[in-house]
Design a protein around this nucleic acid. Structure first.
Length: 800
DNA sequence: GAACCATGCGCC
DNA sequence: AAAGGGCGCATGGTTC
């Protein structure tokens, strides 16, 4: 950059308050003339307006005060565009500027980010609609990342890609699939604008001034300006491309296409939820310094006591006393070596290893391998309180001047769920002393209402839906549905399958019944054997369902359990216990048995079968997404403290699918009817291509609102449908709350709403929140006969 | 010093 | 060969 450019005014420069007049002419008042399309983007000095992160001392000068430095605007309807340096504006001028955006249609990528900053300059604005290309990619084009993978496979196995930016493109996609995280921005999750530009337009975005420090200096150069204006046309172009509509479609056409898309309902829920989430962030969550200090002292005391005990057992670790007690310090190699030696001396056995072959010191691994080790127990006694204690200052550092914490909660995951940043308030330890730090100010209470085991209920609904889908496949006489075409080869090789499916009360045809449902793939079975095996799996499942329901959908067991208001964990526990011969059901099914008991007797049984019920929880939560028996065994040990054998875990898995055969049907359909061959990256080795010819496969599905889901792993494929539906239900609840109740929201944890409510309104608000949440869930689950329950806890602090 | 990787752990 | 999912964020260690 030459100094000449500094002296000569150019068109490539930021505008100041003088732009207000021209802008008011270019941008009609929405309330008078109706909304127009505004493409917007902000450049800021931090993640949120409440950012208190220390600026990096990299020699760059400038003011690190968290602020919105630049607002870039582009009006496609008349071509007006500019980038505004907000440092030249007074607060009042900023307010005027931002106020002009009110009531229009905002277009951009990840607009929640921009929205929070604009709201900070003018708290009363609200766009008429939000066309967010990040949400659109999630809601209507989930196949995008797999389409990108097919480009890579094509280029690496058949012919080089003609794409100019192929190398950049391939690296992006591979990193994303490897879930690599770079400090700062994440590679996983929803698609970035970079991803979209590379995919849709083979265009590499300029990242020169991406970082917050670039927006701190007094002087912003023409290069800064070019950076701002360079990509301003990408979101509007991408919005049309994602919808596969003409690039010159006007904004009304865009909204129409979006609303009529099969992911349109989910998109609307997300869009409306953004308004609520961004205002929730503004309100923030109150932080009690006294409760924090109390917990800090208690944990410190516990840590010191535990350290004394540890030193008694392993004197050598005394050398690390300071490090072990310091939350700011983790384990270094020297400490790891000493711990290894101590455990080796005690047990004669070395440490377990991590995936990469390094010695593992994770609590779970150590408890798994050395269940009786005193050294391990004493060590964890120190590590746990110290690590918990270390979290306190991390949150405290983010308390803003108003005494509250303002994390950004955005919808930016592949499943359509939210995530929370700076700080993440969705992973606060459940220790009541920790939750107590998040308190209600004088005269208020905190209401926490959550859906009871909503993922399981959605699973039950997905089971019912699968049963209906099977009927549809069976009766698709023209054989035209894509699902039917995908299993046509089975139907052709096993012609007796379809006739039997239409009357499962008959015995399964002998050839199918006698087939091996799980042939050893090492023996390289031929296609006929595979077809017979898969048909056999289906017949076994359908037979179980028919036995349980006698053709009556309302008797599908998972659904029946919820209709009767029974505890699904107890049912699974009873099934497991009875299958192992430890419990006698007197010839009844677990559901019928439990139902035959009075409520009191059910509660008593819950106490008697406390252990099995714990195990059943692991089974219920683990198996809906296709966990293997071996993993279930480990999961049960590690997460529920189960002392069971691998064989028992396998038996539990069998009992589960015996009990809820519709869940097996869901998985069968996903594997066989809703999967298709595809050129992808190996989901277990992201840097390796896996063409369709080498087993590459995609698993398709949809959430209960009709939003398409896709994954290259069957397990994720199941999860996306369930977790994605959960997110949609929660968003519906958020958007349906009356505005005054929305303004009480202080946190959102996937299936839990937290509200800070004036004491006088507590009962009224609780009833309303509960009713709204149930209505939201009913809107997606009642079609499948699944009722919903919510639970509220309330107190002077976050109680849950 | 920044970026990257590996590891570990909190929550739903 | 491996096979519940989804997140954010800390420290330690290495490399550029």
């Amino acid at each position: 950059m030459s100094t000449l450019m500094l002296d000569i005014p150019t068109r490539n420069s930021f505008t100041g308050p003088e732009i207000l007049q021209a802008l008011s002419e270019a941008l009609p008042d929405a309330t008078v003339h109706g909304p127009v399309e505004i493409v917007l983007d902000v450049e800021t000095t931090g993640l949120t307006p409440w950012a208190v992160k220390k600026p990096l001392t990299n020699g760059k000068d400038g003011d690190a005060t968290p602020r919105c430095r630049v607002l870039s605007l582009f009006l496609p309807h008349n071509g007006f565009q500019t980038a505004v340096d907000l440092d030249q504006f007074s607060s009042e001028q900023k307010r005027t500027l931002v106020g002009m955006l009110h009531g229009h249609v905002w277009v951009g990528h990840n607009l929640l980010f921009d929205y929070q900053w604009l709201l900070n300059l003018h708290a009363d604005i609200r766009p008429a609609r939000i066309v967010d290309t990040m949400l659109m990619a999630t809601a209507i084009r989930p196949e995008a990342v797999y389409y990108m993978q097919s480009v890579i496979v094509q280029a690496e196995t058949r012919q080089p890609s003609p794409r100019k930016n192929y190398a950049e493109f391939a690296r992006h996609v591979k990193d994303k699939m490897a879930h690599k995280t770079r400090s700062g921005d994440k590679e996983g999750g929803a698609l970035s604008l970079d991803d979209l530009a590379l995919w849709l337009f083979d265009q590499k975005l300029d990242k020169t001034f991406q970082k917050p420090q670039n927006w701190m200096p007094d002087y912003l150069s023409p290069a800064h300006y070019d950076y701002c204006m360079g990509d301003v046309d990408i979101p509007p172009k991408a919005a049309r491309a994602l919808l596969k509509i003409d690039s010159d479609t006007d904004i009304h056409g865009v909204l129409d296409a979006l609303d009529n898309h099969n992911g349109g309902k989910a998109y609307r829920d997300m869009e409306e939820a953004l308004h609520v989430l961004v205002r929730m962030q503004r309100k923030g969550l109150y932080w009690s310094h006294s409760a924090a200090a109390e917990l800090d002292a208690a944990l410190n005391m516990a840590a010191i006591t535990a350290m004394d005990a540890l030193e008694q057992i392993v004197p050598a670790l005394g050398a690390f006393r300071e490090r072990l007690l310091n939350p700011k310090q983790g384990m270094n190699d020297a400490l790891k070596t000493s711990i290894d030696q101590a455990i080796r001396a005690e047990t004669g056995q070395g440490l377990p290893t991590t995936d990469k072959g390094n010695p593992s010191l994770s609590a779970k691994d150590l408890e798994e391998v050395f269940p009786d080790s005193q050294v391990v127990t004493a060590l964890q006694g120190v590590l746990k309180p110290v690590s918990e204690r270390g979290k306190i200052p991390q949150y405290a550092a983010l308390v803003a001047e108003d005494g509250r914490i303002h994390p950004m909660t955005g919808i930016n995951t592949v499943t359509g769920r939210t995530s929370s940043q700076e700080p993440n308030l969705q992973n606060i330890p459940r220790d009541p002393r920790f939750r107590a730090i998040f308190a209600a100010p004088e005269g208020h209470k905190i209401i926490a209402t959550d859906f009871s085991s909503i993922e399981l209920r959605i699973g039950a609904a997905l089971g019912v839906r699968s049963w209906r889908m099977l009927r549809f496949l069976r009766e698709d006489n023209q054989c035209q549905s894509p699902q039917r075409q995908r299993i046509a080869w089975i139907v052709q090789k096993v012609p007796e399958l379809l006739p039997w499916l239409s009357d499962p009360s008959e015995p399964v045809p002998a050839r199918i019944a006698e087939a091996n449902p799980f042939p050893d793939s090492k023996s390289q079975p031929d296609m006929d054997t595979w077809a017979l095996a898969i048909a056999c799996q289906l017949c076994v499942i359908v037979k179980k369902i028919h036995t349980a329901t006698e053709g009556d959908e309302a008797k599908l067991p998972f659904r029946l359990a919820y209709i009767k208001g029974l505890d699904p964990h107890m049912i699974t526990a009873l099934a497991m216990e009875s299958m192992s011969g430890r419990f006698e059901l007197g010839g009844l099914t677990p559901i019928a048995y439990l139902e035959s008991l009075t409520r009191d007797a059910q509660d008593a049984l819950k106490k008697t079968l406390k252990g099995p019920r714990q195990a059943a929880k692991a089974v219920n939560f683990g198996l809906i997404y296709g966990m293997s028996a071996e993993s279930l065994w480990k999961y049960g040990r590690q997460s529920y403290g189960l002392k069971w054998t691998e064989a028992e875990a396998e038996a539990a898995k069998n009992a589960y699918f015996e009990l809820f055969p519709e869940m097996g049907l869901w998985h069968w359909l996903l594997k066989n009817a809703f999967s298709q061959k595809a050129d992808i990256l190996n989901p277990y080795k992201a840097y390796e291509v896996q063409p369709a010819t080498a087993g590459g496969k995609l698993y398709l599905g949809s959430t209960l609102s009709g939003r398409l889901t896709i994954s290259s792993k069957m397990t994720s494929g199941a999860n996306y449908q369930d977790q994605g539906t959960g997110a949609e239900i929660a968003f519906r609840a958020l958007r349906a709350l009356p505005e005054d109740i929305q303004s009480y929201l202080i946190n959102f944890v996937h299936d839990e709403l937290l509200l800070e409510v004036p004491e006088a309104r507590v009962a009224e608000v609780q009833a309303l929140v509960e009713k709204t949440m149930i209505t939201a869930a009913d809107s997606l689950l009642l079609r499948y006969g699944i009722p919903t329950e919510v639970e509220t806890s309330m107190g002077d602090c976050w109680v849950h």
